[in-house]
């Protein structure tokens, strides 16, 4: 029973971070038809913004929302500077551009800040454990689950109920027709990038609060996991990103539990094997729909 509770927490913890990141990828993919490889670097941008604020003495809980908005604005800037001039080019061109942005950002972080890991002081309240009977749960994990579920519900509410949310979903369903209805492409695309940046910022908060440091390639590992989650779930649908994220979280937690200590190094290999399985047998993911991205 305790073991199961621990396992469940591990699944939710990993899954919710992957789901947040995968959602950010999918929101942009739904409109422009490419995976933004620089998405993970928004996590580092969040981290550095948080780092500098704490160095300047800004209280952690004030610095966090500022850094989240900063990550959102960085994503908007990324689109404005790098992707918008390429509007109308093939998704492949955009994908390769996003590789270039990612590489450039890593170098910029290394030169202007530091190639090394920089510690970020995490508030006391996020460290240590809470016990329920015999079950120990990390406070950071509880924080992760609450923040992730809260963000997902807020996003869902926004997409379902706000005008902009409906415009975004209409554009993802059929961009040309949405534009013919007077929905502004530039505005919707900027919104999608802002949301993806905010989601990356929230994911970074959760990731960093369990690790306490920021470094130039911080976003690389979670970003690749999110990519896998998004592909498994289906790139064309936000629900797919959720399923994919939690599926991957469950998969990793399970492998961690069932693989013996000398086999646990093969965990990532096993995950990639399952990705290959999906690419071969279910390339459109768990949830497949047929959107009309912008041409």
């Amino acid at each position: 029973m305790e073991a199961f509770a621990q396992y469940l927490i591990a699944v939710l913890n990993l899954g919710s971070i992957y789901a947040l990141l995968a959602l950010g990828l999918v929101v942009v993919f739904g409109l422009l038809g490419f995976l933004n490889f620089a998405h993970g670097d928004l996590m580092a941008l969040f981290g550095y913004c948080l780092l500098f604020q704490t160095l300047w003495g800004v209280p952690f809980w004030i610095a966090v929302p500022i850094a989240i908005v900063f990550a959102g604005l960085c994503a908007v800037a990324m689109e404005r500077i790098a992707f918008r001039p390429l509007r109308g080019h093939s998704p492949m061109t955009l994908l390769i551009t996003s590789f270039a942005i990612s590489g450039a950002l890593h170098v910029i972080f290394q030169i202007t800040i530091s190639p090394r890991s920089k510690p970020i002081p995490i508030p006391e309240i996020l460290s240590g454990y809470i016990t329920f009977g015999d079950v120990f749960i990390g406070r950071a994990q509880i924080f992760t689950i609450i923040v992730a579920v809260g963000s997902l519900l807020a996003l869902r509410y926004f997409l379902a109920n706000s005008r902009l949310g409906v415009a975004l979903r209409a554009s993802a369903a059929d961009f040309d027709v949405a534009r013919a209805m007077g929905i502004r492409a530039n505005r919707v695309i900027a919104l999608a990038f802002f949301l993806s940046g905010v989601l990356a910022g929230v994911a970074a908060l959760l990731w960093i609060s369990q690790r306490g440091a920021v470094f130039p390639t911080l976003g690389l590992t979670p970003m690749i996991k999110a990519l896998i989650a998004a592909i498994i779930g289906g790139l064309s649908n936000p629900k797919g990103a959720l399923y994919g994220g939690f599926f991957l979280g469950a998969l990793e937690a399970t492998l961690l539990n069932v693989l013996s200590d000398d086999l646990v190094v093969f965990r990532d290999a096993a995950v990639l094997l399952i990705l290959v399985f999906f690419l071969v047998f279910r390339p459109n993911g768990i949830i497949a729909t047929n959107p009309e991205p912008m041409r």
Partner: peptide, 28 residues
């Protein structure tokens, strides 16, 4: 205003949301 070939309704949106999208340019 335009109704395209093959209808191209926003399939993942509800009927109501499709109409809202059609009225995007209207005052709330």
């Amino acid at each position: 205003s335009y109704s395209p070939e093959g209808r191209r309704v926003f399939k993942t949106l509800s009927v109501l949301e499709n109409l809202k999208a059609g009225g995007s340019t209207l005052a709330k």
